[in-house]
């Protein structure tokens, strides 16, 4: 089977662009990136299905699959397209909700992570976090507390 170079190049361009956009913080750009990415992946199925052929319709009589296009990848791509459509709609709704709540659609940092980092920063025994956070500066707690905390974090 000869692979179609144009399709491969187009597909790799789409996937590359998609990956670049996914690395952005704004959800809308991530979304566009994902759409490009899945379109690139779908094109790969076209590569896999080989050269174009006759419509894969079996009329009555002998199945003659000599000049017929491979129907299977097309069926798969159709399924994949539908799934992508639904996910895109869902992500759009989420980007909108995020904008409603925060006024932007940036992907947020994990709050609990930051909290644990602060806990660790408030813990004098732990030198692994030399973060210059306000928490460690204004921390006036006693040594006993540090010990209590040390057992927790």
């Amino acid at each position: 089977m000869d692979a179609n170079l144009t399709l491969i190049l187009t597909s790799s361009f789409l996937i590359g662009t998609g990956v670049y956009l996914i690395l952005e913080r704004s959800l809308t750009r991530v979304l566009i990136g994902l759409v490009l990415l899945s379109n690139g992946a779908n094109l790969l199925f076209m590569v896999a299905s080989g050269p174009a052929g006759d419509p894969p319709i079996l009329s009555s009589g002998e199945p003659d699959d000599t000049g017929m296009a491979d129907p299977l990848p097309q069926a798969m791509v159709l399924t994949a397209i539908v799934i992508t459509l639904a996910t895109t709609a869902f992500l759009l709704a989420m980007a909108y909700r995020s904008w409603q709540l925060h006024g932007n659609d940036d992907v947020q940092d994990d709050i609990e992570d930051a909290q644990i980092r602060r806990l660790a920063a408030a813990d004098a025994a732990s030198d692994s976090y030399d973060l210059t956070l306000e928490a460690s500066a204004e921390d006036t707690a006693t040594d006993e507390v540090y010990e209590e905390e040390g057992s927790e974090s």
Partner: peptide, 27 residues
């Protein structure tokens, strides 16, 4: 929404990867 964003994006990415592997397997 914050947690869901991360979850959805990661899983969409893995789905795209799954599609690529499917195409490769079929080819």
């Amino acid at each position: 929404v914050r947690a869901g964003t991360i979850y959805v994006v990661v899983n969409m990415l893995s789905s795209a990867l799954f599609l690529v592997s499917l195409a490769a397997v079929y080819a």
